[in-house]
Design a protein around this nucleic acid. Structure first.
Length: 274
DNA sequence: AGCCAGGACAAGT
DNA sequence: ACTTGTCATGGC
């Protein structure tokens, strides 16, 4: 037991390619990571973690070797072969150009419930405020894990709450959506685990039974939280990109990795204000 | 000060 | 099936 504690304090060093921790954690797919100096700190799976990168070396502080391999590598999308995926996507001229703007951007695989809840909050909202609301949600209802940090509150924790209980979040009209999501997930009416394996159209329809969850939020939950790399969330930025660069529609061939393509395009569009 | 924000929903054509 | 106003709040 003692050795486990000691082991957790070690800093793990990994060789990574096609990975840029800045691009990945700061592209609007996650909302609980903060950068201080060159180090990113965040909480996921109710565990705190610090990561930083120097070139091809990724440093992970706060996890054992086994936890890093089993939990954090998939979380950061480091279990996928992006060299191969990017090679495939570069067959498209626009994607090839977009990928050069953020070569190390990866799609993360976050916790399904946290992802769903976060993107319910994201609707008609800006990233700065989304982060604030998520932080207040965790402080108010999450389980303390020490050092003033909190795990993301479970659906079961939020389900019995009332609208007024969410007032401190200042999330506006989204409060009722959060509660409906929490209740349906907690009672099993919506099974998020099933969403990783279900035919994607069924998974999307299932999520859209939640009030406040439309196609865009559902696709974000599936892409960023359920490992569904084929999901292609369409927001205002992507709409503009599609209109400008894909007037005949996004090519069928690349839809297997549509979500990854979408994220490169999203990043490109925002950077160049397309 | 006023517009807009990683939308969804309801009501109206 | 498409279009429009509305929804809370706050960042810029």
């Amino acid at each position: 037991m003692k050795s486990t504690v000691l082991e957790k304090r070690e800093t793990i060093r990994l060789k990574v390619t096609d990975f840029d921790v800045d691009a990945t954690l700061d592209c609007g797919q996650c909302f609980r990571w903060n950068k201080t100096g060159d180090r990113w700190h965040g909480v996921a799976f109710s565990r705190p973690l610090t990561v930083w990168q120097q070139g091809c070396e990724l440093f992970i502080e706060g996890a054992s070797e086994e936890e890093a391999r089993k939990i954090w590598l998939p979380y950061f999308g480091l279990d996928a072969d992006y060299a191969e995926i990017k090679r495939f996507l570069s067959g498209d001229e626009v994607l090839g150009a977009a990928m050069m703007f953020a070569p190390g951007l990866r799609i993360m695989r976050q916790e399904p419930w946290e992802t769903l809840c976060s993107f319910i909050i994201s609707q008609n909202n800006n990233i700065k405020r989304i982060r604030g609301i998520v932080a207040r949600l965790c402080e108010a209802f999450g389980t303390p894990i020490g050092d003033g940090e909190y795990g993301f509150p479970t659906a079961a924790t939020l389900a019995p709450l009332d609208i007024d209980d969410l007032a401190p979040l200042r999330c506006g009209f989204r409060a009722k959506y959060i509660l409906d999501a929490a209740r349906q997930v907690a009672c099993g009416s919506v099974d998020l685990d099933a969403c990783t394996a279900l035919p994607v159209d069924e998974a999307r329809d299932l999520l859209m039974r939640i009030k406040g969850v439309g196609p865009k939020v559902a696709d974000c939950a599936l892409l960023f939280g359920c490992g569904r790399l084929e999901c292609f969330p369409v927001d205002v930025w992507i709409k503009r990109v599609l209109a400008k660069y894909y007037p005949d529609g996004f090519p069928e061939k690349y839809k297997v990795y549509g979500g990854i393509a979408q994220q490169y395009l999203f990043h490109y569009a925002r950077l160049n204000s397309v």
